[in-house]
């Protein structure tokens, strides 16, 4: 992980950036007043007593979109190295990449027709 010296500054920046929230929470903990009460700590539900918890089943549509997202995200990750050596690889690899994209487009059309991209 730390073998690439090019990324030293990245790790330093990561450490300094993660110190910011810690520092801010600490300062706020020192300065901010504390006056707790059962009413104040209950979760907000437009002024009435909260009914039940919020950790329950939610719409399956979110999963469908997440699945389609994973497919296309992995596709783009595969396309990046190809785009970087586009000059070297030439026409034949372009056709291969085109077929690869085409398969995914067929997948998108299938998901579209099946209604995976419909919200309601």
């Amino acid at each position: 992980m730390f073998l690439l010296h090019e990324y030293d500054i990245f790790w330093t920046f990561l450490i300094i950036a993660s110190l910011i929230p810690i520092l801010v929470f600490w300062i706020s903990g020192l300065l901010a007043p504390v006056s707790e009460g059962p009413e104040k700590l209950s979760s907000y539900e437009s002024g009435i007593e909260p009914m039940g918890g919020a950790w329950l089943q939610f719409r399956i549509r979110y999963y469908m979109f997440a699945l389609v997202f994973v497919v296309f995200d992995v596709e783009t990750v595969f396309l990046y190295p190809w785009a970087m050596s586009f000059d070297v690889l030439g026409v034949s690899v372009f056709i291969e990449a085109f077929i690869f994209v085409l398969i995914l487009v067929v997948g998108l059309v299938y998901a579209w027709r099946k209604g995976a991209l419909e919200w309601s």
Binding site: F25, I27, L31
Partner: peptide, 12 residues
């Protein structure tokens, strides 16, 4: 905002 109370929801 720094001086305001940090409220942690009791059931969270």
């Amino acid at each position: 905002l720094l001086l305001k109370e940090d409220i942690l929801p009791s059931r969270g």
